[in-house]
């Protein structure tokens, strides 16, 4: 059994969700234009990942496994995530308007973010218990935020640079992402 710290750090650095597992590429490329929206998106994704793990884990172990319905987990998990995101949006809007104004705009985008569904399925596939699952989700969320924040910095330089006409826009951004991904390869092998 891996220790919790190893799970946390490997989800954040060596197996970074964006740069080595390719989940959540759409928000990574779409929302990383400005630093403050990158931080907001990262915080919202981390929050939803942890809560989605807390909701899906009991349903998987207490309902789906005893009834032999493991194959329904894709449908069950995506429904739980969609419901949960809707619920959080309504609660925040009513009770904590300040938080809603900073995070709320990102919430509807998260339902279709494959990193959230990915982390819940990954948790059940790797046979983590509830503590390990939550730690893994926190690590994945922090790793996502880290990649987003680093990349928003890189991107402001790329946008100012004079690249060849055919590479302007998305192609130059992707190549910058490739360089950032190379730098994260330096972490590989850190935890064996």
């Amino acid at each position: 059994m891996k220790s919790l710290l190893v799970i946390l750090l490997s989800a954040m650095l060596t197996d970074n969700f964006v740069l080595s597992k390719f989940m959540g590429i759409c928000p990574f490329l779409g929302v990383s234009k400005k630093l403050d929206s990158a931080v907001g998106m990262g915080a919202a994704v981390t929050f939803v990942m942890v809560c989605a793990t807390l909701c899906t884990y009991p349903i998987y172990t207490l309902v789906l496994v005893p009834m032999g319905l493991e194959y329904l987990k894709t449908i069950a998990f995506i429904l739980i995530i969609a419901l949960f995101v809707q619920l959080v949006e309504m609660i925040l809007k009513k009770k904590v308007p300040a938080l809603y104004n900073s995070l709320g705009v990102f919430l509807p985008l998260i339902t279709t973010n494959c990193a959230v569904l990915g982390v819940t399925i990954l948790n059940t596939d790797s046979g983590y218990n509830i503590g390990q699952s939550v730690v893994n989700s926190v690590g994945a969320g922090l790793g996502f935020s880290l990649a987003l924040v680093i990349f928003s910095g890189v991107r402001s330089r790329v946008n100012a640079a004079n690249v060849p006409e055919m590479f302007k826009g998305v192609p130059a951004t992707l190549i910058a992402a490739s360089v950032v991904s190379v730098s994260f390869m330096g972490f590989s092998g850190l935890f064996g």
Binding site: L19, S20, K21, F22, C26, L29, G30, M166, F167, K168, G169, V170, P171, A172, T173, L174, I175, A177, S178, V179, S181, V182, M185
Partner: peptide
């Protein structure tokens, strides 16, 4: 490796736009 994936896609989009003689997309 993951880095090669980003690189290949970036170059591929640029080449397709060059052939199609269009401006590359600015937005995902």
């Amino acid at each position: 490796m993951p880095a090669g994936g980003f690189f290949t896609l970036g170059v591929l989009i640029a080449v397709v736009n060059k052939i199609a003689n269009k401006k590359p997309p600015q937005q995902v």
